[in-house]
Design a protein around this nucleic acid. Structure first.
Lengths: 135, 135
DNA sequence: GACATTGTATCAATCGACTTAATACAATTT
DNA sequence: AAATTGTATTAAGTCGATTGATACAATGTC
């Protein structure tokens, strides 16, 4: 009755032991959402199925879904499943959120080094120095 | 015989429980170094003293110092202490390293969203959308 | 040489976040 | 009723980070 839009298959999975699994799973979905590969209305895999595919416990997937739902990026309905909201503004918001988070990060670094983000980028690209050069 | 340049007092310390202490300590020093507040030749506080000030174990500070030494950012001499190398290129290198790390981070995010860094920054600043907009 | 200072090394123990595993319950669809 | 799916709970296990204590090594000072 509610098999909404196209199914979604998670992309190839790579494990990064340095961060919690649930966080990586959530991040994976955030990115899929932000870049449009996960369209509004799409149904996510059930927790058990997704867990089996990733070789983790349903609990772990559950925790990822919870994080995403707290941020309003997905909606869940008992007995039906977990979905990306139909409202396309959710995708827009997720793009913005990811971008803001990333930019805020470099901004903190740049600020603590007494530079602007643009200067930081130029420095990283290696064209010039910061000001402590000799020799 | 070797009391080198001016002493250095660690800045006000703020705890971030989400990352290991030794990593935060190392990062603190990296930033101090990169922005010039920790000049070449400066002696860092002895592990025990620094540990006492931060209310942690000397072991933890030790580990931070080890990380920094592996990256060539500091030099240690038994019985003398731990120092920022006199070679000013170390500061330059640390600036570059921090900048590269930060920029690489946003680049990964941007790439996974199918954008350039410049586009990501503009998006974060909120002037425009990514392409999924309606309503 | 004796002593103080500082870095280095090691080990056992603790703590906490993360994860597993098993199980039961709740809502919806068929 | 049965199947599917999300939700909740509890106990246990794992692992990295941190502590605390202690001993050792190199350098400088007296």
């Amino acid at each position: 009755m509610v098999t909404l839009d196209p199914p979604w298959h998670p992309p190839s999975w790579s494990l990064d032991p340095s961060r919690p699994l649930y966080e990586q799973i959530a991040r994976l979905i955030r990115i899929e959402l932000a870049c449009g590969r996960l369209a509004p209305g799409t149904r996510l895999p059930p927790v058990r199925e997704f867990a089996a595919k990733l070789r983790v416990t349903p609990n772990t997937v559950m925790r990822a879904y919870l994080d995403l739902e707290r941020d309003g990026l997905i909606e869940t309905f008992r007995g039906q499943g977990t979905f990306v909201p139909r409202d396309p503004r959710v995708v827009t918001a997720s793009r913005r959120a990811l971008a803001r988070e990333a930019v805020a990060y470099v901004q903190r670094i740049a600020e603590s080094m007494g530079m602007t983000v643009e200067e930081l980028i130029r420095l990283a690209k290696g064209e010039e120095e910061g000001g402590c050069t000799t020799s």
